[in-house]
Each structure stands twice: as C-alpha cells, then as structure tokens.
Simulated assay, not measured.
Amino acid sequence: MSILERLERKLGRFAVPNLMKYICVMYALGFMIQISAPEFYYYYLDLDPEAILHGHIWRILTFLIFYPASTGFGSIFWAVIGIMVYYSIGRTLEYLWGNFRYNFFFFSGVLLYNVAGILIYLVTGVSLQLNPTYMGFSIFLAYALTLPDTVFYLYFFIPIKAKYLAVLETLLYLYLLVVSPSLGGKLSIVLSFANVLLFFILMNQGKRKNIFNIRNYR
C-alpha cells in the first residue's frame, strides 16, 4: 500500500469536497484586494515568516489570496476568465484523483511554501516574499501531465494542447528562474515544480501503470 493510500485511509474523511470552489472564491477576493488596496495584502496577509513566528499565524493560509491584477475593465474580464478556467481545471483533477488526493496536492504545496520560508528565515534571518502565483501554475502543470491532449483556446480562437502550453509555460518559468533578481520568486518557482514532482512520485509509488494516461482513470 502506497503512502497516499495509507494517508487516505486515515485522513480521507477530513478532505474538503469541492475544494476548488473555495480556492476560486479566495482568488476572487484576492483580485478585489489587489485592485482596491494592494498594500493591505502585503501588510497583513502575505507569507512573511518573521510575522508568522511573531503571532501572525493566519498568514500560513492568507498568503494564498493573492491574485495578480491591474486596473481597467480588461483586467476584470481576464481575471473572471482566468478564475473560471482554474475552476474547471481543478474540478477535473478532483474528479479524476478524488477529493483527498486533490486536497493533498494543494495543501502539500502550501506546506512546502511555509516550511521553506520559515526555515530560510531561521537560518539566515531573511524573510523572503514567496509568490503564490506559481502555485496556480502547479495546478495547471498537474492537469497537463494528467490530460496532455486537452485543447485550450488562447484568446478564444487559437487551439493549443495542454501539453504544449505546459511546455511553453515551463520554459518561461525556467527562464525567470535564471534571470529573476528576486530570491523569493526563484524559490517559489522551484517549490511549485517540486510539489508537482513529489505528488506524482507518490501517486506512482508501487505501481507500474503510467499515471499520466487518462485511460488509467476510467
């Protein structure tokens, strides 16, 4: 029996059903904060290890509220589209994997961010600002690995399969990993990739089947 199967037997009853619904509500709230009072997020909600260790415990979760935004109708329009796409992607993964495994995937990412940030602060005294945007990418990457031939329509009319879109985004983030001056940004990218890798290793533990093939879920 794999580690995930043992955990599911013990903790499966605590899994949050339809977790993606709550994540998307959180993204919508984060978007509204970004267009109205972005400083509020950075002062009170972001992942600040120093603040967490001084009593701001809520930050271990509230940092997830962040959703990138700019002003204008176009920003609102694309935010609505983006959140709807993420909801569809997340719900599909929940259906294929089950509630517990999707919960595990998402919250293991949250745990990685918090543990990494706090450990770096304890060792170096530096409180890195970790960017939760890359957690959204990890959800899409997991989807592309599971359903690589799903077709998305960029700007509603350019068809591209999920696997190719994932390759392009991966190359972009690897480029940012090299050129970004932000250590927090670099670490966020690494943690997002690490969470996907860890989850699929655990999913494949003790099995010979290819977990990236949709036929294995039918």
Rank of each mutant, 00 (worst) to 15 (best):
K163L: 06
V126N: 06
L154N: 09
Q205Y: 13
R13H: 15
G206E: 06
S36P: 01
L176N: 04
F107D: 10
L165I: 13
L183I: 13
E169V: 11
M203N: 03
G12Y: 01
L171F: 01
I81D: 05
G125I: 01
M1L: 14
K21H: 12
Y113N: 08
N213K: 15
S75D: 13
E5V: 07
M20R: 14
S138Q: 08
P181H: 08
A162F: 01
T62L: 13
N204E: 15
I118G: 06
L47P: 09
L64A: 13
Y113H: 12
S180Y: 01
L174S: 10
P17A: 01
A51T: 05
I211Y: 15
L176T: 03
T150P: 00
D149T: 13
G136E: 00
F14I: 08
L174E: 09
I120M: 10
L7F: 09
L165H: 09
T170L: 05
E8P: 00
S188F: 03
I201N: 14
T170P: 03
E50A: 13
M20A: 10
M135Y: 01
F212W: 15
R9C: 08
R13N: 12
K186L: 06
G184H: 02
V80I: 12
L198W: 15
A79T: 10
Y164P: 12
Y153L: 05
I33H: 06
Y41H: 04
G206V: 09
L197N: 09
G82V: 06
L47W: 11
T92E: 06
N204Y: 11
W97M: 00
E5M: 12
Y102R: 07
F140W: 07
Y155K: 05
N213P: 04
A194E: 00
L4M: 07
I23D: 02
L202D: 02
I189M: 04
I3Y: 11
I120K: 11
L147W: 10
K209C: 12
S36K: 14
S88R: 14
E169F: 14
G184K: 05
F200A: 00
I201L: 15
L7W: 12
L96G: 04
A166N: 05
F31L: 00
Y95V: 05
A142I: 04
L4T: 03
Y27L: 07
G30M: 00
K209G: 13
A194M: 06
L191G: 00
F199G: 00
I89W: 03
Y41R: 02
S70Y: 12
G72F: 08
F200V: 02
G12N: 03
N103P: 08
L176R: 05
K21P: 00
L154V: 15
Q129M: 08
Q205A: 13
T62K: 11
F104T: 03
N103W: 01
R6V: 10
L183M: 11
P132E: 00
L61D: 00
N18S: 14
L96H: 06
Y134N: 02
K10M: 12
K207M: 02
S108V: 09
I23Q: 09
M1E: 14
F200K: 03
D48H: 12
L47T: 10
Y87L: 07
